[in-house]
Amino acid sequence: MTAPLLSISHLNAVTGRNGETPILRDVSLDIAAGEVHGLVGESGAGKSTIAKAILGILPRGIRIASGSIALEGVDLLTLDASSRRKLLGATVSLIPQDPLTALNPGRRIEAQLTDGLRLWRGLSAADARLRALQLLDEVQMAEPERVMKAFPHELSGGMRQRVLIAAAFALEPKLVIADEPTTALDVTVQKQILRLIRAMQERHGTGVVFVTHDLGVVAQICDRATLLYMGKTMEQGRVKDLLDAPRHPYTRALMDACPRYDQPGRGLAPVPETVFADCRAEIAAFDRERAGHV
């Protein structure tokens, strides 16, 4: 097996004045080139923290205590800000959560689609424009010429998310971080956007980190997934195995809490409080054991 595209190992993140509150607990995961890896969990599980740590955009107050994030063997955490920016700018991109706020309201779509191409590929304005039109075509945007001239407020939410997907794939990145890219969209648009991300990812052979709280989305788009609770990996593996034969009670409970269109008439079960209690006990035991080692 070749070296993974992205390798996170024993990543620990903390917050609080003295770093007393753990946010990530010893998270490890590998992503191969061309693979879609789901980060699943409820709010506060640490899935977005992992995404932000990869991109180097952790909010003030959260810091990495230990571990490494290696992109093609280069540990991102040891780079200074400037070389990290240059390395990531052209190789890792982001599909953000809310398409309504993720485009600059004061700049035309053309400017926002071509700026990265001009900076990192050194394309002329005319060449970057051609490439941008081609990208809009790839994301099945109607009237690409009109869209190029438009300002964000003239486009619908679904159209803006298509623009952002086009921008994310513009530089043929090796890794795309999709941070709940369908949460802000309505259900009919969600499905199209998921299919589009999968199609773009397959065509370009891109690795994708897909952050979501929705197991249905994981089933639809991810090859492998990591299930997180309170910043600790509960279960990790191929999505097929995870869903067919969940080993961890938390995974099983989450699946019971999911609507299943293939099993109409099956009721939804809320995650039992005992499962949460077991998860918390498992994490407390983990924290105790680690404190003992130190």
Binding site: L55, L94, P96, A102, G116
Partner: peptide
């Protein structure tokens, strides 16, 4: 949008 541009490098 500034975050997105920051990720662009």
């Amino acid at each position: 949008y500034v975050l997105v541009a920051r990720v662009k490098g």
